[in-house]
Computed example of a mutant assay.
Amino acid sequence: MPKDWFEWHDFYNTEPVLQQRLQIVGQYISDSLDVSLPGIIRVVSVCAGDGRDLLGTLSNHPRAKDVYARLIELNPKLVERGRLAIESAGLAKQIEFINGDATTSSSYAGAVPADIVIVCGVLGHVGDEAGLNRLLRNLSFLSKKGSLLIWTRGDTNGIRHSDTVRKLLGEAEFEEVSFKLTATGDMGVGLHRYLGEGSALPENQQLFVFSGDPNRGSQPVSQTSGE
């Protein structure tokens, strides 16, 4: 079993569900960049892992130079790997990789509201439905009217947890643009647009509780943890 989230990311080399999820997320990021207005595109990534979803997409996207992003991740080894990828891509002046706590509002100060918000590998690790609802509603602090949200959620034991996310997002003023299941059928990836007006980012407020354990990711086919 993996010791931490850094080792957990090795599953991307072997697990079809993670490879398929990453492909869909990358496509949604690309689509979001395509429809963004001319000028700067601000992106934030919550619990970003090593940032491979965004960085992989930017490697060959024509609007890469328009993206100014903040990626937030607690595992220092993942952050180090992400920063090396940013340097290699020549994007160090545009993308900052923060080794910090993505659950606290202070980590987003100066980077929001964003045009694109990435919340992948998170929603399965916020406790019960009340915790999930809290996180989804607090996305208003990171968003503005028209912001695009990209998210993932695993479905386990025949339970469509992704349907719950879709329902709660609608209640939180997010309109569904697209939704896909991986070919394995047990991981949902969604693209939503925020219809609300957004809310001012509070100071030092916990936006959600992340309860993920990397050992649960030893069977990623049924999990949503990691990047």
Score class of each variant (00 low, 15 high):
Arg83Trp: 09
Leu37Tyr: 03
Leu18Pro: 00
Lys93Met: 13
Gly56Met: 04
Asp53Tyr: 12
Val43His: 02
Ala85Ile: 06
Ser36Met: 15
Ala92Ile: 12
Leu71Asn: 05
Leu55Gln: 10
Asp50Trp: 11
Ser32Leu: 15
Gln19Trp: 10
Ala48Met: 11
Leu54Glu: 01
Ile40Trp: 01
Glu96Arg: 12
Asp66Trp: 10
Ser32Trp: 01
Ser106Glu: 13
Pro38Ala: 11
Pro62Tyr: 07
Asn60Thr: 10
Thr104Phe: 10
Gln19Asp: 04
Asp31Gln: 15
Ile41Pro: 02
Gly100Asp: 13
Lys65Met: 09
Ile29Lys: 04
Pro38Ser: 09
Gly39Cys: 09
Glu87His: 05
Thr103Met: 08
Asp53Trp: 11
Gln27Asn: 12
Val79His: 07
Ser45Tyr: 03
Glu80Arg: 08
Cys47Asp: 10
Arg70His: 03
Asp66Glu: 15
Ile95Trp: 03
Lys93Gln: 15
Gly56Arg: 11
Ser36Asp: 00
Leu55Thr: 07
Leu58Gly: 05
Ser32Ala: 15
Gly26Pro: 04
Ala48Ser: 15
Ala64His: 07
Val35Gly: 05
His61Tyr: 08
Leu55Pro: 02
Val44Arg: 00
Ile41Lys: 02
Gln20Cys: 01
Gly82Tyr: 01
Ile40Leu: 13
Ile98Cys: 02
Val79Ile: 11
Ile24Gly: 03
Leu18Gln: 07
Leu78Ala: 01
Leu22Met: 09
Arg42Ala: 15
Glu96Trp: 04
Val43Met: 07
Asn60Glu: 10
Gly26Lys: 14
Ala102Met: 08
Ile72Asn: 01
Leu84Asp: 09
Phe97Pro: 00
Ile86Ala: 01
Ile24Ser: 07
Asn99His: 12
Ser106His: 07
Gln19Lys: 14
Glu73Pro: 00
Arg63Glu: 03
Leu71Ser: 08
Ser105Gly: 11
Thr103Arg: 13
Gln23Cys: 02
Gly90Asn: 10
Arg70Gln: 09
Tyr28Asp: 00
Tyr28Gly: 10
Arg83Pro: 01
Glu87Trp: 08
Leu18Phe: 06
Val35Ser: 11
Ile98Asn: 06
Ser105Pro: 02
Ile41Asn: 06
Val44Pro: 01
Leu33Arg: 06
Asp50Arg: 10
Ser30Phe: 05
Gly26Ile: 04
Gly49Leu: 05
Arg70Cys: 12
Ile40Lys: 12
Thr103Val: 02
